[in-house]
Design a protein around this nucleic acid. Sequence first.
DNA 1: ACCTGAACACCGTTCAAGT
DNA 2: ACCTGAACACCGTTCAAGT
Lengths: 222, 222
Amino acid sequence: MPPRRPTAAASTAARSPLSRERIAQVGLELLEHEGLEALSMRRLADELGVGTMTLYGYVDGKEDLLDAVIDHGAAEFGLPPARGSWREQLSELAHALHRVLVARPHLARLRLTRPIVTPGAFRFTERGMQALGEAGFDRAEAAQAFRCLFVWVFGSASFNAETRAEDARRESRAAIARLPPGEYPAVTAAIDELPATLSGEEQFAYGLERLLDGFEARLAER
Amino acid sequence: MPPRRPTAAASTAARSPLSRERIAQVGLELLEHEGLEALSMRRLADELGVGTMTLYGYVDGKEDLLDAVIDHGAAEFGLPPARGSWREQLSELAHALHRVLVARPHLARLRLTRPIVTPGAFRFTERGMQALGEAGFDRAEAAQAFRCLFVWVFGSASFNAETRAEDARRESRAAIARLPPGEYPAVTAAIDELPATLSGEEQFAYGLERLLDGFEARLAER
DNA sequence: ACCTGAACACCGTTCAAGT
DNA sequence: ACCTGAACACCGTTCAAGT
């Protein structure tokens, strides 16, 4: 069998020596260009121009490879500058994280089951906890509120996937049209409005504002 | 090769004739008992005591099998009785859905990439849209608000997985302990509080209340 | 030390055949 | 009509060897 010609994914650093770093880099490119199914040990080794087993010298197995790819991808997340009120800071933080996840949908999906615990990931937590402290929350409630923002950002990026937004809207609309209107009056009436909420920056921003409103209401009642 | 003895997953209906229904049923049991990796065409066929290719007479392939399993699982979701204020109704609806997802973590994970569009799934939407209409939202905003609840419920069930809560807490705590305290003062100070928010009914309820507070604030400003 | 092919136990699916 | 084994193109990983 002739060796597979390296594709675009590997070309950026095709001649560098092998290292965990480079494996993670090319793995990330493969993930983003061709999806999670393409990111196999065998395929990645081909892409790097080495034998499959060579990877095991740098990476502990498939699970460890995925961790390395995630850490590598997360390192590129840029923290926005801290300015404005606590509310403006949290909003900007959430939007920044959401933007990068929308741009890297496969990474967001991979992130689902494996928490990122690199120092870099905690820069977002640090910034968020500081803003929530400024707002007046004690440590326990600031942690709860931060987790709410985290779940909202990652949940939106995962469930409202931009990549298949059109398909999702079409399927949803068709399913609503098939419902017996007598049993589903409110859903049937909202056949235009419900599919519209399945993705998009506007839907993300709406929920974020409601959460932040909720935080303010909570502070006011103390 | 001797035929694999059917395990507990298939025993409930081991002698029924083959049907899409029964394939979905045994597939669901396999999924919940042994996880997503165990739910393969070959393994499921073994479990049912038939040849692998036999499944293709009832199911269009792996993707269609997963859809069938999800629909089968979703059909069991019980809608709570509608009573109380719009806020109480939405709260009860969200809690009911969250409870069933927490009890079926693998189903929740599968649900991530494939929307459920069966009539049964829309019973929750119908109930939610009615409550939000009562509250005073127009159709467009009711749809947005409902989607917020949906993402919150599924996001919590996916990211705050109860099944590996202890591991997640331990890993998170260890990672925080490794951070340079000077650079991460707010995170380091919350080394007890942050891991505590990684799962649990209380964290789910906290965010739900903040969202509902946010809906009320939004209605008040109109 | 660093790399690797062969082999094993798995996948999903096509195809051509069995009853 | 309903079912199926063999074959193909893939997986991750162990093992025993190459340089």
